[in-house]
Nucleic acid binder design. Structure first.
Length: 570
RNA sequence: CGGGGUGUAGCGCAGUUUGGUAGCGCACACGGUUCGGGACCGUGGUGUCGGAGGUUCAAAUCCUCUCACCCCGACCA
């Protein structure tokens, strides 16, 4: 394609108020423009990249037997009402009414609609399994869109759904997707991790996320280099060691005005690990006292899975419920429900609030002085020990590019997706759902591949494979060679499907500097530079965008050299 | 939803404190010279100063309301 036929509005200056590198570079290199908060226009280059990614998605989906279909993005409310999500999801769902006043919504995802069509059409075990997918727009009224195309209100998603007769079938389709996802992200040139994740509102079964590490990421993932353990921090576990046993006499101690663990710890000279931090939270049902070792922090996600939505008690609420001030609350003598984190060692003696202003109690023995529900509600920190191999854990920021969920019958039972098994017995279809965000893949690829001059696309998803840059298009020889290479590469290589080459010819009447800057910005893997100096010796220059390596080759070997360079780069 | 910030030419910004009727750089158009890393000279066009209301002889500037966008947090199939 010719540059003069393409709309590539590159920017000389960095746009203001934009932080994520992928966002800056996509704007600067003319890939996208923003319409409103969380709404993006994909310009020709941006759309080419998305299509490259989508093609990889399609190929890998077809390989595992998934069938492409297309579903509406405007949905009638009643299907969402049947599964209950019409009610459990709040402002995040775009809702509207049609002209007759019927409630409608814009699809945030398609479990409901997929389960609906399955319920209508699948009647027998003979029709199972099925795997259906689409690359379709989703709409979510995000509280805060951010990071350019990392978190938007309207986005495209590859979503597939498996339907099986039994758990075994689900496990198989889950595995197939897992393997396909590894191929997809590798092919897209991403560095990524597969991590254990929180199923959230999707279901209660197994789920994994595929995370591409980048500083622009929204999630923290916990990793063990030693054994490969990888988990979203929301569900990650770790091992921490208990301090040595110190016997304490059970009695109150006077701690005037000392409220935080740190203050009391310094005041009485005991390590924070010998304290029990008592946090009062309020759920929809009841107040709950949450206990954790003094030096540790609560993982609110873990706690939420245990007790549902909660808030931390205000000073007034605390006073009303416990009769004492925050800072002096403790487990001893509490009548409300207590949840204790496993970091508190039942064999040790602890110090905590005395439920009396200006007093703490020491010598608390968990098994003796209070009753609690014990659970893991602790937030993992860096340098703790791996729960699998006791290696040292590290934490990285990452962006979620894909996920896989086992849904079971969560959607099929409410929507009455029932089939008859071999024995003529009615059974609900077992479902799985599997998503990938192509725009996030593109953004993550940039976040992981760029330099001070611009984007460095992994060649599998670059908008073009080769950019030919005649430096002076008014010079006849330059132009002729450029056109010649452009025609030949396009013709020869497009006749072989597996050696398809897409060539961009920068035929603009621009100064060399401008062409070089733009070429580096838009990040096409191979640049073929045709300048008068080299032409005098019948040579052209081939430059790899990623490594900046360049070589001067003679014109009659140019095509072979260009293709070789293309295969050498990545 | 809570906290912070920004809205002035296509883009990046100055001007707002102290009111006097809008400017710089880039981009854009034309002419000329240039041509291997975002050229130079000359000429030219470009604005409901985010919007509404108010104060004033006079508002980009002061006051009130409002909208949009960005950042942090909450939220996030």
């Amino acid at each position: 394609m010719r540059y003069t036929n393409l709309f590539i509005p590159t920017l000389r200056e960095t746009p203001s108020g934009v932080n994520a590198i992928s966002h800056i570079l996509m704007l600067k290199a003319g890939y996208v423009r923003q319409l409103a908060a969380g709404l993006f226009i994909f310009l020709p280059l941006g759309w080419r990249v998305l299509n490259k990614i989508n093609n990889i998605l399609k190929e890998e989906m077809e390989k595992i037997g998934a069938q492409e279909i297309s579903m509406p993005i405007l949905h009638p409310a009643d299907i969402w009402q049947q599964t209950g999500r019409w009610y459990t999801i709040k402002e995040e769902m775009f809702r509207l009414k049609d002209r007759t006043g019927r409630d409608m919504c814009l699809g945030m995802t398609h479990e409901e609609i997929m389960a609906w069509i399955a319920s209508k059409e699948i009647k027998s075990y003979r029709q199972l399994p099925q795997v259906w997918y689409q690359i379709q727009t989703k709409l979510r009224d995000e509280a805060r869109p951010r990071g350019g195309i990392l978190r938007t209100r309207e986005f495209i998603m590859k979503d597939s759904y498996s339907f099986d007769a039994d758990e075994e079938g689900l496990n198989k389709n889950y595995k197939l997707h897992e393997q396909a996802y590894h191929k997809i992200f590798s092919r897209c040139g991403l560095k990524y991790y597969q991590v254990e994740s929180d199923p959230g509102i999707m279901g209660d079964m197994e789920s994994h996320e595929f995370m591409a590490p980048t500083s622009a990421g929204e999630d923290d993932i916990v990793l063990c280099d030693n054994c490969g353990y990888a988990a979203n921090i929301e569900v990650a576990k770790s091992i921490i060691k208990s301090p040595d046993l110190i016997e304490m006499k059970f009695n109150e101690i006077y701690t005037p005005g000392k409220k935080t663990i740190k203050e009391v710890s310094e005041f009485i000279g005991f390590d924070e690990r010998y304290f029990i931090k008592s946090l009062l939270v309020i759920t929809e049902k009841e107040p709950v006292l949450v206990l954790i070792r003094g030096d540790q922090e609560i993982n609110e996600k873990k706690l939420e899975r245990l007790i549902g939505d909660f808030t931390f008690a205000t000073l007034e609420e605390a006073l009303k419920i416990t009769g004492t001030e925050i800072g002096f609350i403790g487990p001893v003598g509490q009548k409300i429900k207590i949840i204790a984190d496993l970091s508190i060692d039942k064999n040790l003696f602890y110090i905590s609030g005395a439920n009396k202003v200006d007093y703490h109690i020491q010598g608390i023995q968990p098994s003796k002085h209070f009753k609690a529900q014990w659970a893991d509600i602790r937030k993992v920190k860096e340098n703790e020990y791996c729960p699998k191999c006791e290696g040292i854990l590290k934490i990285e920021k990452a962006i979620e590019v894909g996920n896989i969920f086992k849904l079971g019958t969560k959607y099929t039972i409410p929507l009455n997706a029932i089939f008859l098994d071999k024995n003529g017995k009615e059974k609900p279809i077992i479902m799985g759902s599997y998503g990938i965000g192509p725009a996030r893949v593109a953004a993550a690829a940039i976040e992981q591949n760029y330099d001070e001059n611009g984007i460095i696309w992994p060649k599998s998803i670059a908008p073009f494979d080769i950019e030919i840059i005649p430096l002076n298009v008014t010079d006849q020889k330059t132009l002729k060679i450029a056109e010649d290479l452009y025609q030949k590469i396009s013709e020869i290589y497009n006749s072989f499907a597996d050696r398809h080459m897409e060539v961009l010819l920068d035929d603009r009447q621009e100064r060399p500097g401008v062409k070089f800057k733009d070429a580096d910005l838009i990040g096409i893997p191979i640049q073929v530079i045709i300048g008068e100096k080299n032409l005098k010796n019948n040579k052209v220059e081939i430059k790899k965008r990623r490594t900046k390596e360049s070589k001067i080759v003679s014109i009659n070997k140019a095509i072979v050299e260009i293709i070789n360079s293309y295969y050498e780069t990545y």
